[in-house]
Amino acid sequence: MAKDFQHTMTKTTTTTPAGAPAPPPRTSRRKKGKGGLKPLSFILLALGAFVFLFPFYYMLIGSLQTEPDTSITGAFPTVGNITGQNYVLINESINLFRGLINSGIFTGGVILCTVIFGIPVGYALAQMHFRGRGMVFALMLLVQMVPFQLLLIPLYVLIVRDYGLADSYLGMTLPFAINSTAVFVFRQYFLQLPASLFEAARIDGASEMRILTQIAIPLVRPAIVTAILLTFIGPWNEFLWPFLVTKDAAYQPLAVSLANYISNVAATAANPFGAILAGACVLAAPAVGLFILFQRQFISTNIGSSAKG
């Protein structure tokens, strides 16, 4: 205690003399940042943004070119070289609409299961006292460390061979059905609600189901949006598992059919890159669009529970 106090004392004495002519220490750094004179940082960030965004821009440009133009001028749109033909071409080889529907069913199934089964667990872990709670929590944390490559073979043997769920939405969805990260997000948000609220509801005789659906869930709407977005990108972008499960093109999510196009069919097409990039744009657009629309939710999840407001 005393040492602690002394520590803060010395700290304040060292900061005060310097802080006296300048504005108070808390705001000084922030103000310096706002002054905008961080040229080196800013150049670095701008360079980074270019490196991260350019491939996406190039993806779009490339998907619209009649002839692939890989020179430096090809990075700028030229009027004579723009066409929608690549989208038609890729759609003839892989049914884009079917792929989007399959991706949608796969992703939707995972989101639905995560919301229906994940919210009660998250609530129970945060606001209910029951035997085994610690174990469930430990299990949830442990699950996030299990590497998928170890599960690859046994899951394939079980789901595809033993249960015969190859080429089915169920087989695709099963290993991902409840997203543990989303469960963790639910728990974090429910934990921020005051326990007294739930105690009061219980004293008034409300059942746990009613407390959950009528008190807890309406209070954590942003958590549900966050968890849905977080869950969305997993199955939407997943390649390996649906690739193993679906051999029938009618069931393949877009990521799988596009990958098959890249590795097999592309060699025979007139403008393979144009067609690949057109397919890539269709696959990327929903995830990128959702992310830009809801970027605040995405980013606050990763900042974690530090966002208390």
């Binding site: 996406f56 190039y58 490339g62 972008n237 990521a255 596009l258 696959l283 995830a287």
Partner: peptide, 14 residues
């Protein structure tokens, strides 16, 4: 963050 949320299959194309 955009590359992180995009499917690897799509960006591999570029």
């Amino acid at each position: 963050y955009v590359p992180y949320v995009t499917a690897s299959v799509a960006v591999v194309g570029v």
